[in-house]
Design a protein around this nucleic acid. Structure first.
Lengths: 359, 359
DNA sequence: CTACTTTCGCAACGCTGTTGCCAAAGTGCA
DNA sequence: TGCACTTTGGCAACAGCGTTGCGAAAGTAG
């Protein structure tokens, strides 16, 4: 509920243009194309791009072949005009990346860590790993993004009860890190970070990013925006109940997807794990009418095909039941590999520049 | 992905002010209060409200007691400056209402109908019932909104496979009605219409509106906006699977909430029906982190207390498991009674005036 | 070389919300 | 009653946004 004024309009349009420049990548994009895609007049685009070039965020990059008249000048984002550090803080390891405006990773670090060693030790390890990258970012560093196991409070950057490590409940990770590093810090759930990274990376529309590793979580992107919900706790996919009065879960409930899935994995029954995951994905797809399901996390990485096949089978069946009008929802392995969360965490700071209200 | 210009900014701010006027109701609201709530300057608000008064949409309505200076002039929405007709098209009955800008119902009609009698007969019944109301709306009529059983295509106003009446699959309800009535028509799922009505009626934030009647559907409001999903099919709550390999559902799957719930109702076990509904609501609440669950529909209306109690019990347990930081999600009966869907359907045309992108 | 197309910037413009200022209409106190 | 003060709200000038009108630049086509 905010009123709009001229500066707001200007920054909106600037972000729009900047996002198109980013999406265009190395190939670049012409002013007229920018005008068409934004709905603005060519003259407005010229003014906006002139400002961006003055600020060093954009640059001319050659010309395109003529189509019968004056050849178009290609504009490009200047990637190193801004940087962000992204960190994945997992239960047993730490990953950090330094990325440029266009998402390119220019440095990466990795370390082992034990959450059980206490907040002070973990914080020290993060600062050590990220400190160097922060320095390399220099003046153009926008800040540090952290993806951590949920649930947590994204707005305030406070951890909640991390499964297996209850002592972190209420730990103000964001403020502690911001003080030590001296730069802005944003904290989000690892699955949300991964989802944001994929959304910025080109997955349009609405999709779910399911991460199966030591736990099971979901990042939901609805209409190009990460959906976090009222208390930023959305995406509790692991504890969706799909079997009334089923086997007990460590969360205290019964028949949770996570419990069924991890148990099946533990006894080597990948097909059943995939089927359970598929039922959960199918529920989610029906409820939210999403376009795509992406699977990620260590367990998936260890055996991608059977999981993709199993989940797809359940979704196909749903589509078949819905008749001719129902479309099968594609299932894929989330790109990005084991750095997906860290890269997405960096986007927590970069994305707002491009008009994505996910910061 | 649209560029903003001055007219867009103007209509945004106008809608903002208009929505606050509507929300303020009979009590009205002062210019300075509007300025505070929108973030605009008092001068901008003065200009905007002057325009609204010229157009007849707003009017001055007395003064407020002084707080030490010049007393504030109270502004009010002029309710009959605009009208919309809302229709609930159910499997066996028809309801229509004529509502004013502020949501007040100024006329209501009811009729019995049999979907099985064929599209032509049903269309005729709708035209007969709504025609009179459309005329009463006169020049100020914005159009007709229809809430029908899902699934359907909101964007194109085309019905899909209505459970029990497969012959309607592909029926272009919107265009057929628009031609007969000669006014704009918008079609949406009944549960979405009900949810929109509640959102406009004052339920803020994010909530789910679950309708249990001849079927079971959900309307999802996420961040003050009805969430319809990529193919406007979101809210397929009834066929969420909560019991792997459970009893077969008429949809072809097994263990759907709808099947379990309706079976429990059929055998008189309301407590079990409420528990199943509660598990579904709990899944939904965890996945989307919503603020509130509202229950509606005939079956709920017949026995509200046990359903509310049963659903609340499941949600309470989830909150307890999540520990101190988890908040219990309140459960209530959806206000609006048996006209909730029709009134919400009218809002399909009124809401866009107030900046709600649900039209 | 001429005609045409396409790109793109300069200058004037219209319209937005903002700022500076002042009048109006109350309260509170001497 | 009179003066000081607070709050409301409009008038006028203003800055800044995208838009429009127009012309220069830089190609292709014949």
């Amino acid at each position: 509920m905010a009123g709009a004024n001229l500066p707001a309009m200007r920054s909106h349009n600037t972000a729009l243009v900047l996002d198109l420049l980013r999406t265009a990548g190395e190939g670049g994009i012409s002013r007229l194309e920018l005008a068409e895609r934004t709905g603005l007049t060519p003259q407005a685009v010229s003014k906006i791009t002139a400002r961006l070039r003055e600020e060093g965020l954009a640059a001319e990059a050659g010309r395109r072949a003529s189509t019968g008249g004056k050849p178009a000048t290609v504009l490009r984002l200047v990637p190193d005009a801004g940087h962000a550090v992204g960190i994945q803080l997992d239960r047993d390891e730490l990953r950090a990346v330094l990325v440029e405006l266009d998402g390119t990773v220019v440095a990466a670090r990795h370390a082992e860590v034990d959450l059980g060693a206490g907040a002070e030790a973990v914080l020290g390890a993060v600062v050590e790993l990220a400190g160097e990258l922060v320095e390399r970012g220099g003046d153009t560093l926008l800040g540090v993004g952290v993806g951590a196991p949920g649930p947590l409070d994204h707005t305030h950057g406070v951890l909640h009860r991390v499964t297996g490590f209850p002592e972190y409940d209420g730990f103000p990770l964001r403020d502690a890190l911001a003080e030590r590093l001296g730069v802005p810090v944003v904290v989000d759930k690892d699955s949300n970070a991964a989802a944001l990274g994929l959304a910025v990376g080109g997955e349009g529309g609405s999709f779910a990013c399911l991460l199966l590793g030591t736990g099971l979580g979901a990042g939901l992107v609805i209409g190009d925006t990460v959906h976090r919900g009222a208390r930023t706790g959305a995406g509790e996919f692991g504890h969706q109940v799909v079997q009334l009065d089923g086997p007990p879960c460590h969360c205290g409930d019964r028949g949770c997807i996570e419990a069924l899935c991890l148990a099946a994995v533990a006894r080597g029954d990948v097909a059943e794990a995939a089927r359970v995951l598929g039922v959960g994905a199918s529920n989610l797809a029906g409820l939210l009418d999403i376009d795509l399901v992406l699977l990620g996390g260590r367990t998936i990485a260890a055996a991608p095909e059977p999981f993709v096949r199993g989940v797809a089978a359940v979704l196909d069946e749903r589509a078949r039941r819905e008749g001719g009008l129902g479309t099968t929802i594609p299932v894929r392995v989330a790109p990005g590999g084991d750095r997906g969360v860290a890269e997405g965490a960096a986007q927590l700071l970069l994305a707002p520049l491009f008009g994505r209200a996910d910061g």
